[in-house]
Design a protein around this nucleic acid. Sequence first.
DNA 1: CACGGGCTTGATATAACATAACAAACACAC
DNA 2: GTGTGTTTGTTATGTTATATCAAGCCCGTG
Lengths: 133, 133
Amino acid sequence: MKKRGEIMQAEVLAILRRRGTPMSAYEVLGQLRDSHPQLAPPTIYRALAALTERGGVHRLESLNAFIACKSDSHKDASILSICDDCGEVEEFVSPDLLKALSSIAGQSGFAPTRHVIEVHGQCASCGSAQDQA
Amino acid sequence: MKKRGEIMQAEVLAILRRRGTPMSAYEVLGQLRDSHPQLAPPTIYRALAALTERGGVHRLESLNAFIACKSDSHKDASILSICDDCGEVEEFVSPDLLKALSSIAGQSGFAPTRHVIEVHGQCASCGSAQDQA
DNA sequence: CACGGGCTTGATATAACATAACAAACACAC
DNA sequence: GTGTGTTTGTTATGTTATATCAAGCCCGTG
């Protein structure tokens, strides 16, 4: 019974990609209920967990939401900038910063396994829009 | 009616400090119900929000939990290392890293207002404990 | 092929986290 | 002391997430 799960993941990913901005698990669920009226939360959460692990989806810890990974093919921890006005998210990768971070946390013998780096603020377009207001 | 709120905040902070490791809002609520049986969630969340803003408490976004700020007196964003085994949290401050981070996110005109930096892993004592296992 | 163990998925239920919205109390100006 | 704005308390509900068990599939064995 492997296929079903993979189909699920593909559908979830498609929905997230279509949206482009962060979606909660329940928003995804809502969309999917159009085609699969029976769907329950654990199914979605399992699909999202698998996708997150695979690197196809980012979980935004500070929003409890998910977003399709755009510049896919980096399974390293990303730096995510989140516009609090429009919801737009950008991904950045910086091995240097990650290294610096690991070394700071490692000062006392801590062994990092997962980095959460999220920056909230205002994206370029929302910032300039506000200037006029 | 200002005092009541401040007392609340002090009690919440005391509970968090006593514990030392992360607590969910509802754990705090449970503790407080010993002395204030009537207490409802919004009261706790308000106290936690005020404390977080003041810098007395950190919110751990990736755990939906809170912890008393130990090295208090830095209201800058902290780097938090979280041991997934024992729950121990350490705080670090690194203006350089913050600057680097802002500059990365700022590449496309993004204006950061709030940084979330959390590193999961294993603390020194849990790491060495595991070595023996 | 049947049947049985181990694993994946699905469904039900409920737990955990958080806030909206309104009511009551206070505090300060007049 | 009465009105107005603000803080706090309470009720209710909304949102996010997972435990648990049931059902289905895969595949190796007899």
